[in-house]
């Protein structure tokens, strides 16, 4: 198929001159803002509304979660470094950074699984109280998004390795990157709203 080869490729003729895939991606991310907005709103509304313990202050280990946050931030950095490599057509290095991003993502998800299990053993389940309900569902939704991102990263690596990506490999990397960074900024908000803002145990 001639149109996917390196230099014979036609310029994509779109009305705006912008690639359709990228417009679609931004529209999707805009839509995701509303999704996480609704989840975070639920969490905020029910802050301090639990009628029984355990309460956040008894259970959170801010230091542990801070490390997780650093890991996710670092994965955003490796993601953009992969894009830089792709733009320089250094595809081996691109794949290396992608793998690093996926590994950091897995570390984050693994950390989350560990966190969930330890909270569970401390007596906080999905059904214990409103805190458990809103905490697990909000961070769980985020974790699922990270997991989907990891799948996309690994597919990207595999397809690039097998030579099944279009010649301009930077474009798909940029698209997956947009999603990945979005998941990161959602975590920035969650980290602040859920973990950092102190929450007193309700009196009574």
């Amino acid at each position: 198929m001639a149109d996917t080869t390196a230099h014979a490729a036609p310029v994509e003729h779109t009305s705006t001159g912008l690639p359709s895939t990228k417009l679609a991606m931004w529209l999707f991310l805009a839509s995701e803002c509303l999704l996480f907005g609704a989840l975070i709103t639920t969490y905020v509304l029910y802050r301090g509304a639990s009628t029984t313990g355990p309460y956040p202050s008894e259970i959170f280990d801010i230091r542990y979660t801070s490390v997780s946050s650093f890991v996710l931030l670092a994965s955003s950095l490796t993601m953009v470094l992969s894009l830089t490599a792709a733009e320089k057509r250094d595809f081996a290095r691109m794949r290396l950074w992608l793998v690093a991003t996926a590994l950091l993502g897995m570390t984050f998800v693994g950390g989350q699984v560990y966190e969930f299990t330890s909270f569970y053993h401390e007596g906080l389940s999905l059904t214990t109280n409103l805190f458990g309900t809103t905490f697990y569902v909000l961070t769980g939704f985020h974790g699922v998004h990270v997991t989907v991102g990891i799948l996309m990263l690994l597919s990207l690596v595999g397809m690039s390795w097998a030579g099944r990506l279009p010649d301009d490999q930077a474009f798909p990397v940029e698209m997956v990157g947009l999603y990945w960074h979005f998941v990161d900024i959602v975590w920035i908000v969650i980290f602040t709203v859920v973990y950092l803002i102190p929450q007193a145990k309700p009196a009574g």
Binding site: D3, T4, A6, A9, P10, V11, E12, H13, T14, P19, S20, T21, K22, L165, P166, D167, D168, F171, P172, M175
Partner: peptide, 9 residues
Amino acid sequence: EAGARGMSD
């Protein structure tokens, strides 16, 4: 998916 292809100009 041709963002991908198209952008390779």
